[in-house]
């Protein structure tokens, strides 16, 4: 992101207030890493508005939230030498490049997925390519509508013994996220055919890390591993 030195205070405030477009916010986070003046402006802006954070009435934090946090912490070695650092902010210096490459990769995978599905007797209604925060393709979901859905994992996931990967979709805002099932195998899974409306173009699919047996609440509770939007197979 290019910006005038004189606009740094404006940018810092707008970033801190959350008034920026997501893509610009990511660029600012990357620029902060190399621009000390911007970093200082953001820090100063945070401090200015921090008293407003003290105006909320604290709630009682349950012990089970801590248990969930503790259960999903990466090991110490990951902290010392963070592998998981590839979050959106950290590689945002190459943000657009990464996005472009992932988009190309996603198209290729999508094409492969479509060819694969065309060569089979039953076609999925939609195919969704799931991408993680860093923009890497992680899995493909094929949704056949009411009968079943299928997920194919395209990356290695580090799933602790007491965890499982759960697949979700968002058929509509009113319904909220609905579980399509759990991934048992390493490579993929057949998912149960929940009674859902026909999958549509651009429907959201995502996979999260949940406790063994699936989310206790019936809604996603764990970290999102990857997500993507459906494309209708044509």
């Amino acid at each position: 992101m290019t910006y005038e030195r004189t606009s740094i205070p404006d940018l810092a405030d707008e970033y801190v207030l959350g008034l920026m477009e997501a893509a610009d916010a990511v660029e600012i986070e990357a620029a902060m890493e190399r621009d000390a003046e911007l970093r200082a402006a953001v820090a100063a802006s945070r401090e200015r508005f921090l008293p407003l954070d003290a105006t909320v009435e604290p709630v009682v934090a349950g012990a089970n939230l801590w248990q969930k946090i503790e259960a999903s912490l990466p090991l110490h070695t990951d902290t010392a030498n963070p592998v998981e650092n590839a979050s959106a902010n950290d590689n945002s210096r190459n943000g657009w490049r990464v996005a472009a490459i992932s988009a190309i990769a996603a198209s290729v995978i999508l094409a492969v997925g479509l060819v694969y599905s065309l060569t089979r007797s039953v076609d999925p209604l939609v195919v969704a390519v799931l991408i993680n925060e860093a923009g890497d393709v992680q899995a493909v979901v094929e949704d056949f509508g009411n009968e079943d859905a299928r997920i194919r994992l395209l990356a290695d996931f580090d799933v602790p013994a007491d965890k499982t990967i759960q697949v979700w979709t968002l058929p509509s805002r009113e319904m909220g996220p609905v579980s399509l099932g759990l991934v048992d195998g390493v490579n993929g899974a057949h998912l149960g055919g929940a009674e859902l409306p026909k999958p549509r173009e651009s429907q959201l699919y995502e996979i999260t890390l949940e406790q063994t047996g699936g989310s206790p609440t019936g809604r996603p509770t764990g970290p999102i591993l990857a997500k993507g939007f459906a494309k209708r197979s044509r």
């Binding site: 939230l65 010392a80 998981e84």
Partner: peptide
């Protein structure tokens, strides 16, 4: 929950 995981991985 997500924030605490990020605090943990980014504390350095």
């Amino acid at each position: 929950q997500e924030a605490f995981i990020r605090i943990w991985t980014h504390a350095h």
